[in-house]
Write a protein that binds this DNA or RNA. Structure first.
Length: 210
DNA sequence: CCAGACGTTGTT
DNA sequence: GTCTGG
DNA sequence: CCAGACGTTGTT
DNA sequence: GTCTGG
C-alpha cells in the first residue's frame, strides 16, 4: 500500500468529520503486511485508529497473516465471518501495488483512483495482545486490472464509506462490494525498487517505461 | 442424531 | 460457537 | 505482497 | 521448498 499524502487523506477524512493528526502520520510509499496503517471503523460513531495490516489467525497452527479476504467467501469463513458482520473497516490509501508475474519476474504496477484517496473496504479484529488488525477485501479484477492480475481490492465510492461501516444488511453490503469494480483505476508501471519492502520512498511510485 | 474438527490467499 | 462428516 | 535466508553443539 | 522479515 501507498499512504504518503497526508493532505489528500485529510481531505478525504474532512468529509467524514474525522481528522488525522499530522504528527501521528508517517508517509509510507511501501507499506507492507504487519505494518501499522490508519483505518476507519464504526466505534462510538465513526472512528479512525492505527491497525496493523493482517489479521492474526486464531488457530496458532496457522501462522500466515490474513492480509486479504475474498469478498465472495468472507461471509461464511470462520476467520472472517464475525468481522464481516460487525467489524468492517475502510483503509484510506493513495494507491496500492499489484505485480504482474512474468516467468520468475514480478513486475510492479502502482494503482490509483480518480481522486487522491482510494477507500479500500476491509475488516478488522483485535488480536490476543489487544492490538487492532485489519485486512483488505478482494474481488474479481475489473477490465483495467485484468491485464496484471485476476483480483483487486474492493474500492468503495467515497459517498458509500459511511454506509459500508454502518449498515448491517448483507444485501446492501453486497451491492457496495459489487460496485467496487466500477471504480476507475489508473495503472502506472513502476520500477522493481518497490519489490523490496526495505525500500520506502517516493521512487516506489515513479513511472518507468513499460 | 453425535463426534470431532475448527487455515486464507494467490499462485502453480 | 459452529460447521462437517458419518 | 516480495525478498532473502535456509546450521548445531559446545565452549568462550 | 518453505519460512521469516519487512
Amino acid at each position: 500500500m501507498n499512504v504518503h499524502d497526508h493532505e489528500g487523506v485529510q481531505a478525504f477524512l474532512d468529509d467524514l468529520g474525522l481528522s488525522l493528526d499530522p504528527a501521528r502520520f508517517t508517509p509510507r510509499y511501501n507499506l507492507a503486511p504487519s505494518d501499522p496503517v490508519h483505518a476507519l471503523f464504526a466505534g462510538e460513531g465513526l472512528e479512525i485508529a492505527e491497525m496493523r495490516w493482517g489479521l492474526t489467525p486464531r488457530n496458532p497452527k496457522q501462522r500466515n497473516l490474513l492480509i486479504n479476504a475474498r469478498a465472495e467467501t468472507a461471509w461464511r469463513l470462520p476467520s472472517f465471518r464475525e468481522s464481516m458482520r460487525r467489524r468492517r473497516a475502510v483503509v484510506p490509501v493513495n494507491g496500492f501495488y499489484e505485480w504482474r508475474r512474468e516467468g520468475d519476474e514480478r513486475l510492479p504496477f502502482y494503482i490509483t483512483g480518480r481522486q487522491p484517496v482510494l477507500a479500500l473496504a476491509g475488516l478488522f479484529d483485535v488480536d490476543a495482545q489487544g492490538e487492532m488488525r485489519c485486512c483488505v477485501l478482494t474481488t474479481a479484477a475489473n477490465a483495467e486490472m485484468q491485464c496484471i492480475h485476476d483480483r483487486m481490492p474492493v474500492c468503495l465510492p467515497h459517498d458509500r464509506v459511511r454506509e459500508w461501516l454502518s449498515d448491517g444488511d448483507p444485501a446492501a453490503l453486497g451491492k457496495l462490494i459489487a460496485g467496487a469494480r466500477d471504480q476507475a483505476l489508473h495503472l502506472t508501471r513502476v520500477s522493481k525498487f518497490v519489490n523490496s519492502s526495505r525500500n520506502d520512498g517516493p521512487e516506489c511510485m515513479l513511472p518507468v517505461a513499460a
